[in-house]
Design a protein around this nucleic acid. Sequence first.
DNA 1: ATAAATAGTGCTCATTTGTTTACTTCAAAT
DNA 2: ATTTGAAGTAAACAAATGAGCACTATTTAT
Lengths: 215, 215
Amino acid sequence: MKKKLTERQEKIFIFIQEYQQENGYPPTLREIGKKFDILSTFGVKRHLEALTKKGYLNILSNASRGISINKNESESLDLINYQEVNNISKIPIIGRVAAGSPITAEENVEGSIVIDPAFIKKDEDSFALKVKGDSMIEAGIFEGDLVIISPKAIVKNGDMIVARLEDEVTVKIYENKNSIVKLIPQNKNYQTIIVKNKNEFSIVGKVTGVVRWIN
Amino acid sequence: MKKKLTERQEKIFIFIQEYQQENGYPPTLREIGKKFDILSTFGVKRHLEALTKKGYLNILSNASRGISINKNESESLDLINYQEVNNISKIPIIGRVAAGSPITAEENVEGSIVIDPAFIKKDEDSFALKVKGDSMIEAGIFEGDLVIISPKAIVKNGDMIVARLEDEVTVKIYENKNSIVKLIPQNKNYQTIIVKNKNEFSIVGKVTGVVRWIN
DNA sequence: ATAAATAGTGCTCATTTGTTTACTTCAAAT
DNA sequence: ATTTGAAGTAAACAAATGAGCACTATTTAT
């Protein structure tokens, strides 16, 4: 379970996420400090330690930019991920997502799917979401399909992602031009969403697969 | 268009991708060197420069771990092709089908996918086909998708099936009214096929699943 | 055969970057 | 009133890391 962050910590956490998404690598202490007018690296470091203690980050000691974002916060999920049968990755399937709850919380797990490790490239944090709604039918994603999500993947413009807006989770095409983030559906009947309040928006992960079962 | 890589460059590029995927940040020159037994950082650096010049990477000068992966377009680097011997609901993937040969002949197998037995109802004869062509895009099946086929399933009108017509294998919607068999595509640009010579037609199986991998 | 591209070693150097200690400020809780 | 926790400054330090040069070896193409 994730512990609550202070306002400052949350802003820093969001910045790290955005930096990582835009650059493909995490920021340094000094880059974070510069952004938030913190003149001492020590001040930044303690923020990172707080975020680590609360389970949001992992930090590799003495490694530059050794920040990795922790998107699978609950320990129960780790148990699910470690159930590997003969080196085959078992991916948890997330069903309904209660408002405000972490997306990978145990109570949301509906089942699991087993994928050949040759297909899913060593991303043990992957999970699957059951799609509700038809906003992506033109991209060949239907209601009831499972989308496989890689939380650590680098998201680029045009990628299909799962985004969280306030307490809603949706599948859309991601576009970031001049810091204006757009979430583009693939259905003429839906409108593009322009993200205004970045605090209420986060990228859950990139869609790396689609699985559909008929009957 | 991306330029071709040397064997060495490709291995290094794949390693960088995997490292990024696993750790959330890119490797350092020395970490790459260690992996490939390159004792000098300069040797590694020139590989990165080559990869940059050929459009695979971007590098931020003087920044540690300042490597970002360029995912512009088609990366047909099939690092996914090896087979492992495990016996749990392993579904073979059929690639090209030689004219006249039985569709599940061993030489046609391109790989395999492992599916949770909870999903596939113990149909051990299931196999997967890689879709070529776009005749089913309106049913959410795109070129390159894998369709999972159950040869034993009972096929009803309206079901999606894989049919063999002479030496061609296609995915279509099946309809049989008054002994007139129609194969209906899901794409306005294609025409419904009416089967005349039933000797040259057979049902390979029913489509029970669709799997798509993005990137 | 000769030039060009590829691959690598060993070394030095400069910068980047994380670590640590000591001290300050402020607000909220006890 | 005192303690506690969050937030920050300044300075010195060590480790990590990229940059660069001179030189060698092998393969590939002209």
